[in-house]
Write a protein that binds this DNA or RNA. Structure first.
Length: 101
DNA sequence: ATTATGACCGAAG
DNA sequence: GCTTCGGCCATAA
């Protein structure tokens, strides 16, 4: 299984209303330094129908990027109950989803 | 093999 | 709060 598929496999597990940082996802893959590569993988494969890639955000609380425009990403997050003001997610730590080891 | 790019991160000023 | 910078890694050329 190549890198991007591992990224997708984990992304699909993120429950509605919760989010994960790129770094956290990378850590779940075994190396927290892969955060950048994770974003790169999500950028190339866009299956918004099957993969909730909008639930992956930056560690600083900002939404991060999105292939169809980050405005669209924020819109989706809001529609799942998340509160975002000034482009920053409120209470990020409270809605952070933790992967099982 | 080397270079460039990008939905990243943390430290420093 | 802000910007800049160096370091990361997977991918494509």
């Amino acid at each position: 299984m190549d890198f991007k598929n591992r990224v997708f496999a984990l992304t699909i597990k993120i429950p509605r209303g919760k989010v994960v940082t790129y770094q956290l996802l990378a850590k779940a893959l075994g190396d927290p330094k892969k955060a950048r590569a994770v974003g790169n993988a999500l950028n190339k494969n866009i299956d918004t129908k099957n993969i909730p890639c909008h639930r992956v955000v930056r560690s600083d609380g900002q939404a991060g990027g999105y292939a169809f425009g980050n405005a669209e990403k924020i819109k989706k997050l809001k529609s799942e109950g998340l509160e975002i003001k000034n482009g920053v997610i409120s209470s990020l730590s409270a809605i952070l989803f933790k992967f099982k080891h």
